[in-house]
């Protein structure tokens, strides 16, 4: 796809050169560390099985990854529209899909990088306790998948508006709404409850990753959510040419 790698490189460098990228990384790593300390090293230390500690770590980390994903994605298109630099991309011989995908992949690689910087925490559990490598690998796969899905939701939000504060609000609301589907499913009757439970971004789709069980249906779910929102973001970009 023409232009994709060029856009990817620029956006990745933009994260590395911007304060936003490092602030998001610092806050996420700090909160991850604090929560890990509370779960594994604090007063509760030694009261849980290592596998449970690791599952709690992935549960907490998934929420932080989602928040970081919203924060990283909202500037991607909204900022360009605000500063009008988007004209360079839109008048270059690259497709709107390449623009969306290039930006998404850059955000995903950056998010993946800071997510993997938390790896020392599960390794500490593995050294001092008894957990399998598989649980760690599956857990991180889950974090990356949920991160990708939330980034895609953020891409749609950032494609919809030129204000990144509004984009952040939209992205956070959509992500929070999809997290809350699980709670909604518990207070309504079937068959709608099953629909909401199946669409929930966290809960049943992430539980397997927390305990190291890999269900292909969960992997497909996150990939489908990612694809769906990236497609919508691309179509919104195409629609802007008709405005």
């Amino acid at each position: 796809m023409r232009g994709l790698s060029t856009i990817f490189r620029r956006e990745l460098l933009a994260y590395l050169h911007s304060s936003l990228g490092w602030i998001v990384a610092a806050v996420m790593l700090l909160l991850d560390g604090v929560l890990f300390y509370a779960e594994a090293l604090g007063p509760a230390a030694g009261q849980r099985l290592s596998a449970d500690v690791l599952a709690r770590f992935f549960f907490n980390a998934s929420g932080l990854v989602a928040i970081a994903a919203v924060a990283l994605s909202v500037r991607l298109i909204a900022e360009e529209r605000q500063t009008r630099s988007i004209a360079l991309l839109r008048t270059a011989p690259v497709s709107d899909a390449a623009i969306v995908l290039g930006k998404f992949l850059a955000a995903f690689v950056f998010l993946g990088g800071i997510t993997l910087l938390t790896l020392y925490m599960p390794l500490l559990v593995m050294v001092n306790g008894k957990v399998s490598v598989g649980q760690i690998v599956v857990g991180y796969l889950g974090l990356l998948l949920i991160g990708a899905a939330v980034l895609a939701i953020g891409m749609l939000a950032t494609a919809l508006t030129r204000s990144y504060l509004l984009a952040a609000a939209l992205g956070a609301a959509a992500t929070g709404g999809m997290f809350l589907f699980w709670h909604v499913s518990r207070v309504i009757e079937p068959p709608l409850s099953k629909v909401f439970a199946g669409l929930a971004l966290h809960a049943i789709h992430f539980q397997g990753f927390e305990i190291g069980v890999l269900h292909l249906r969960d992997v497909f779910y996150y990939l489908a959510v990612t694809y769906f929102f990236l497609l919508l973001a691309t179509k919104i970009m195409e629609a802007r040419r008709w405005e």
Binding site: L160, L232, K235, I236, E238, A239, R240, W242
Partner: peptide
Amino acid sequence: GFFSLLRPVLRP
């Protein structure tokens, strides 16, 4: 508004 944005989704 928003709905016109979805036009290319339907008939690009």
